[in-house]
């Protein structure tokens, strides 16, 4: 029993709500109501992505839709992916690479608007958290220090402590550091740690959730 207007799909980076292009906000809300109320499992607290082709809903509508999802179903909208019109492939063929992330609260701005810049070293016992976006640290994160972000974590220094990116479940979040020698890394619900005695490699590295659902670390060249 497929709903013609909205579909709910689980992908590697979390739940995706796929919206049919040619509908109005009211139709979408009605369809969501039908879809989610008919489910046995409550989704409260889960984060969700919205996928659609360009211009079915205005940014005003998107904001209303986000409020609707949050108020009625307690869902956290972690990203909106707008797909290229020319791209004839099914919407979710390759969500991570084709998507353009768009913030709901800042029109057409990347979600760095709500992000945080920290101009100091995070020392043992100190925690920096940004639950609305990404964190950029102009300094080091020392052993015993901790950084938590809803989005990405970028350390323009050495990351020697703990880092938890995508804390609300955004598995496309990444952790980048000039020197990546952490105690532990977490992205969403995945955790990993480097082998004991890992030495700094001398180049920037990026950690992300790889194909096997494990956190992989590789040389950071560009996004």
């Amino acid at each position: 029993m497929e709903n013609p207007i909205v579909k709910l799909r689980g992908y590697k980076d979390g739940l995706h709500l796929i919206i049919n292009p040619k509908v109005s906000l009211n139709e979408v809300e009605a369809a969501i109501h039908e879809l989610l109320d008919g489910m046995n499992q409550p989704l409260a607290g889960t984060s969700i992505n919205i996928d659609m082709r360009p211009s079915p809903l205005s940014s005003e509508d998107l904001k209303n839709l986000e409020t609707y999802l949050t108020e009625n179903y307690d869902l956290v909208v972690s990203g909106v992916n707008v797909f290229d019109e020319k791209d004839e492939s099914p919407i979710l063929a390759a969500p991570a690479t084709h998507s353009i992330s768009q913030s709901l609260t800042n029109d057409n701005q990347p979600d760095f608007e709500q992000s945080q810049i920290v101009r100091q070293t995070i020392r043992s016992g100190q925690t920096t958290s940004c639950l609305s976006g990404s964190v950029v640290i102009y300094g080091d994160v020392n052993p015993g220090g901790e950084v938590v972000a809803a989005g990405d974590i970028i350390v323009l220094g050495a990351l020697r402590g703990n880092a938890h990116a995508g804390v609300h479940g955004r598995l496309s979040s990444v952790i980048i550091a000039m020197e990546l020698v952490p105690l532990q890394l977490q992205i969403g619900s995945y955790m990993n740690r480097p082998p004991v005695g890992q030495k700094p490699r001398g180049y920037p590295e990026i950690a992300r959730v790889g194909a096997e659902d494990i956190i992989i670390v590789e040389e950071f060249i560009k996004f």
Partner: peptide, 10 residues
Amino acid sequence: IRDADRIIGL
């Protein structure tokens, strides 16, 4: 050094 780092923060 770990303890010193904590103290510097405090």
